[in-house]
């Protein structure tokens, strides 16, 4: 019961801490932050992605999501395959979630 209470208090406390800092900060000069990847320092695939980042950010975002999903799926399958070969009984354990 107390655990839950603490969790909820967490959100409120976080917001509470954040607000004065934001209010205090808003008086300062604002400046846009633009990042340019230094493609002169990288080659190959890294160069391709750094270049994409500079020239077409939407494409870069789609790439990121697709690659992350693809990599997650690949690693998921691969790890399942490897773990099933160890001979350990993995079916009887309790399922632990996030």
């Amino acid at each position: 019961m107390r655990g839950i209470f603490n969790r909820c208090r967490g959100v409120l406390a976080a917001l509470w801490v954040m607000l004065p800092a934001v209010a205090q900060a808003s008086g300062e000069a604002a400046g846009n932050i633009v990042v340019v990847a230094d493609t002169r320092r990288v080659t190959g695939v890294m160069h391709y992605f750094a270049d994409l980042y500079n020239s077409d950010i939407l494409m870069f975002a789609i790439w990121t999501v697709v690659l992350t999903v693809a990599m997650g799926c690949t690693l998921g399958f691969l790890m399942d395959f490897i773990m099933s070969r160890t001979g350990l009984d993995l079916k009887s354990r309790k399922i632990v979630e996030h």
């Binding site: 340019v36 990847a37 230094d38 493609t39 002169r40 391709y48 270049d51 994409l52 500079n54 020239s55 077409d56 494409m59 789609i62 790439w63 697709v66 690659l67 999903v69 693809a70 799926c73």
Partner: peptide, 22 residues
Amino acid sequence: ASLMVIAIAVGLMGSPVMAAEV
């Protein structure tokens, strides 16, 4: 789903990218 991801990846690879200098 995997095939779709691969298809999208191939499509992305093929699309022309405007190369920018730095």
